[in-house]
Amino acid sequence: MAPQYIANHNLPLLLERLRRYAELHGPVRGEDGVVRFAAIAPGTLPDLSALRTLLPPKKYLLHPQETILNYTAAAGYQLQAEDVRSLILFGLHPCDLAGINYLDRVFLGDAPDPLYAARRATLTLIGISCTPDEFCSCHILPSPLNALSDLFLCSVDEGLIVTSGSPRGDELLDGVKDLLEEWEGAVPEDSRRFFGHAEAEQVRPEPDATLPEWQEFASHCLGCGACSLCCPTCYCFDVLEFCGLDSCSAERVRQWDNCLFKSHAEVAGGTNFRKERAERFLYRYRHKYRGFGPLQGVPSCVGCGRCRVVCPAGLDLRPLAERLEGRPL
C-alpha cells in the first residue's frame, strides 16, 4: 500500500477533525515569543516551525508541583484522585517522543506510578519530523530514531506523510481518511529524520571523577535548575509534606528537583554525599549518558538541546560526553 499523505492545505481540517477526539495541544508561540505546549485555539495553527518548546511535554505527565497523597485522620493516606481528560499532543519532535518513551520506562515499569499512568493512558502522541539545529544531538542518538508515537508525520514537499504506530493511531487515521491521499513520490529513506544514524548502545566504565572539567562546570553553574527542568527526561522529584490548617489533615507533594541543588544528596543530620557542585555534575553526567538502576546502560539524553539553550551560563556537557563516550553526540 502506498504511503498516506496529507496536503499542507488540509492541515487546518485535520486539526479540526482531531479536536473531535480530544482536547488538542501543540507548540504555540505566546505573545512573549516563548513557544510552549498549550491548547491550540480553534481556527489557529500550532507553530510547527519552532524547533523546541521551553518546557518539554513531560509537564503533562509530571506536573512541576503536584499532590500525590492526601491524609485525613479518618482515612489515613489516600492516593490523589484526578479527573484526567483525553489529550492529543500534536507536533512532538522525535526527541520529545523519545523523552516520553523514556519516562514511560521509569514510571510505567513493574509498579506503575498511579498519577503518571492515569495521565499517560489519556495521551495521544502525534509526532512530526524536524530539522535539527546546532544545539540538537538527536540525529546521533538511537532513542529519537526509534521513538514510538500514535501517529507520525513526516514532512515532504507540500505536505506530510502520515504513519500510524498504534491502534489509537489507526483509529485516528480511519477517522480522517477522506483528508488523506496516496503519496506517489519517494519517501525519505529514514521516514523520521532527514539525516542521522543510530549508534549501538555500549556499557562504558565509570567516568573519571578527577577530570578538571567537572570543576570547570561547577565554577560556572548558577544552580538555577534550568537544565533539568527543561530536560524531557529529567524526572528527579523532591517530596514535601504540608499540614492543613487544622489538627490533622496533610498533603504530600512532589515537585521537580535538580541534581545540582545542594539538598539533592543531603541526608538527615546534614551529611551531604555530593557536597561539591563538581560531584553533582558527575552525577548528572552519569544519569544523562549512562542511566541509573533498572535503566543502567540506557542513556537518557534524547538530544533535544534544551539544556544547552536555556543555561544562562551557556554550559554544555556535550563536548565532554563526546570525549568520554568516544563518539560524536
Binding site: G33, C224, G225, A226, C230, W256
Partner: peptide, 19 residues
C-alpha cells in the same frame, strides 16, 4: 535551597535575563 529561576522555569516564563 533553589533560586527564583527554578520556579520561573517551572512556570515556563520568558527568561528576562537571557532573552
Amino acid at each position: 535551597d533553589y533560586p527564583v529561576c527554578t520556579e520561573c522555569r517551572m512556570r515556563e516564563n520568558l527568561c528576562l535575563l537571557t532573552e
